[in-house]
Nucleic acid binder design. Sequence first.
DNA 1: GGATCGATGTCAGCGACTGACATCAACGGT
DNA 2: ACCGTTGATGTCAGTCGCTGACATCGATCC
Lengths: 193, 193
Amino acid sequence: MGRWEPNARGRLQEAALELYVERGYEQTTVAEIARRAALTERTFFRHFADKREVLFAGSEALQECAVEALDAVPAAASPIDAVAAALEEAAAVLQDRRAYARKRHAVVSANAELRERELIKLATLAAGLAEALRRRGVGEPAASLAAEAGIAVFKVAFARWVGEADERELAEVVRESLGELRAVTGGASGGSR
Amino acid sequence: MGRWEPNARGRLQEAALELYVERGYEQTTVAEIARRAALTERTFFRHFADKREVLFAGSEALQECAVEALDAVPAAASPIDAVAAALEEAAAVLQDRRAYARKRHAVVSANAELRERELIKLATLAAGLAEALRRRGVGEPAASLAAEAGIAVFKVAFARWVGEADERELAEVVRESLGELRAVTGGASGGSR
DNA sequence: GGATCGATGTCAGCGACTGACATCAACGGT
DNA sequence: ACCGTTGATGTCAGTCGCTGACATCGATCC
């Protein structure tokens, strides 16, 4: 048995989410989170860069798995299909944590600072996907456009999935939303209608 | 003549941008900005919600003019073309403040907190465009997808425009980028390649 | 068994931000 | 011309996010 209770980081994450749900993000102090986890404020900031980051610890792993999925797509696939495969992989991960993802989303969407952090995580994911596309020979601006468009689709799909009462799979909503983006952008390069 | 020097808000914006350029955003304190503007820290926070917002004061006006441009598009136009018209209007506004826009962009892109704020402003713009699309009868998720895709195009186009040495018009880069998005998403709804 | 290490605690301090109250020129009504 | 109100600003005290420096002490390695 160690000198301290194990899993300090996990206890902080759990305590933070509980408190953010109970009284809201702004009304919660870092000292309170640390106290509920039986730690000190200083230790909180050794594990997480700031008060928001405690809710976004899994985002690097999600990005890694999306990028790996993109790298695994056959070279013959189009950029947008490669991005779609990566997003469906990410969707599958969130699907497995469905209850947690929804609770977390409720907290994040209730606060502007947390939404900002979410957006920069998505932008970082887009940059990672664009870089992976360039590795497979896609040029600019096609790589960035495919990645950013994919993230746009993912944002819309996630919002629908969270709001829906039924039990469709997130990956399915992503596929459907991508199809609707294709419909809305149209294929021709100069046309209207 | 008033009791105080006029245009306190403008002086604060000017002083802030100068200092952010001179020593960087993080190394600048609000007290220093206020002092350069011959005001107090407290007054700074009466004009701007936080230290970042002083760089984003024009974003509401930009959104308003984009939304108005969208509302003015003939009803026959497709959603994506309506969004394109709105973005070209916004592009024209930035084109007129080209030197300022580039200096400001250098400051914002050098700091993560400022990038977060920029992203949420763009997300707010997307929401405003989506709402305007819904007013013209576009359903969901088409409205959100068209708006988010438009913002994705705008982000990529703006980055290219800022990075380019030549003097192309931003609106032209936006149009070109939208064409490239169309090319990259493809028109068919299920196909690859 | 002693040196080292790593996770945590303690403490002092800065800077962002806020609420409460004071100030005082300008303005409008009488 | 006087006076009450208004609104932008100043002053001050205080909370909270976040950081650097140093102390603690079980675990681990030689």
